[in-house]
Structure formats: C-alpha cells, structure tokens
Amino acid sequence: MTFYLVLTVNSVTFGGLLFLLSAGFSLIFGLMRIPNLTHGSLFMIGAYIGATFVIGLLGVKLNFWLAAILATLAVALLGALAERLLLRRLPGDQLAQVLVTLGLSFMAADACLALWGGDPLNVPTPDGLGGFVRTGIGAFPLYRVAVIAIAVVFAVALWLLLDRTRLGAMIRAGVDDPDMARVVGIRVSQLFTIVFALGAGLAAFAGIIGGPILSVYPGLDQDMLPLALVVVILGGSGSLLGSFVGSIVVGFLYNFGQALLPELAYFVLFLPMLLVLLLRPQGLFGRHVP
C-alpha cells in the first residue's frame, strides 16, 4: 500500500517538473512552430548552473532559491540569444530549425561534459525542506510535496498570464493564427523572443528544482527532451491545460512503468502517445495537427 502511495507522490512530483519543462516547449511550438530540440539542454544547463552555486563549486555558495533564480535568468538570457542570433534567421524553415536546435543541443551537451565532467552532481535538498510530511495515510518527503506546490503555483500563474494579461492575449492570438496576429499588428518579433526566453527560463527552473530529486548528470538532456515531446504530443501543442494533463499522465506512466515493468518502461511510456497519434493526432487538448 505504502509502495503505491510513494509511487503516486513520486509520479505527481515528476509530473510537476515535466509541466514546468513542457509548458515552455509547448508554447514555443504552438506559437512559433519551432520544434525546440534544445529544450532538454536548457533543463540540464539550468540544473548545472544552479547546482554549481548550491554546492559552491566556484567558491560561491548561495542559498538554493537564489541559485535557482540566477540559473533561471541566465538560461532565459541564453534562450533569448539563441532566438535572436540563430533561429530568427530561419523563419518558417522547420527543417533548418530542427537542425540548428539539434546542433546547439550537441554543443551544449559537450560543453557541459567539458565544464562539469562525467560524474553526477548530487544537489542537496534546500534548507528546511529535508523532512517528511506526516499525514493519516503515511509520510511523504517534504521537498517532493513542495515541488508539487511550486508546479501548481506556476500553472496558475501561467494561466493568469495567458488568460488575463495583454501579453497573454497576444500569445494566444499568435497560437491560434500566427498570420492573423501579424496582420493585426502584434509585434511578433518581440513576442517570439519573450516567449522563447520564458520557455527557456521555465525549463532551467525545472532543471534546478529537479536537481535534488534527479541529480544532475551528462545525458539528463536526452532523458528529458523525449518526455517533453511525449507530453506535447499527448496534450496538444500550444495548450497549457494539455501540457498539465499530459505531464501528470507521463509522470505516472514513467514512475509506474519503471517500478512495475522496468524492462518495458519506455514502451509503456510511449504506447499512449502512439494511441493518441492514431486516434486524435492533434493531441488531447490541441487544436491543430502539427
């Protein structure tokens, strides 16, 4: 019984991380039609930068949350630069975008290996969150519960951003009909940079708060990117609700799959994706077939 409870909490936690990762991926894909294959790298770079400050590798030891904010901002800046300097030269050319983002992800992976080496970094749990929450049905690691709470807060904040602000209205207009958005005078160019930076920042933030759970290691990027892809294919691109539901589903499939059918874990993970592709190619909550 406790086994399943623990697994459930782990699944929801992992789903929360995936949501932070894939919300940006989904928005970038939905709005800019850019398949951003660097998204896993952004997650990993965020995790490495954050870990560097949390552990104090450079001699500077920072509070966990301060480090997380720093890493998030740094990666958001990186994302904005990549968008401004490279992706912007290739508007509408998706093959070129795939290749460039893929190339960048290789460079990022190798650079991380060169800078941080091959051994995994273990990120300590932030102060005050190391204990357990005791409830009637069992005890849960406090940090995991905190991650779930953070993910929910971010989900609500993102929803408010998209639903209640002018920026959000512009993003939604862009997702629904990019050509029309241009025609009605939305400054798409600026919007793209903002969304790309936002997505990159969210991915990095997910990376660092995932650090204490997943640790940081070479290949983390390639573990996370396909998961983000599955989430977006399941949920539909450009849909926040889709990302949320997709993330939770993938969180459960991943954790239960690993625990119960370790040999076929990947198969279990990708099977629902295939079903969705066959039965509802635009994704559960998506409007367009990619």
Binding site: V100, S105, F106, M107
Partner: peptide, 18 residues
C-alpha cells in the same frame, strides 16, 4: 570534443550553406 564540433558543423551548414 567531437560532439561539440558535430553540433557546430550542423549550425554552420544550416546557416551558411543550407
């Protein structure tokens, strides 16, 4: 760093000689 070079070639070809 073979992978770094691989990635850089990718980016360069797409931008310079698509």
């Amino acid at each position: 760093r073979w992978n770094f070079l691989l990635g850089a070639i990718f980016v360069a070809i797409v931008i310079l000689m698509p």
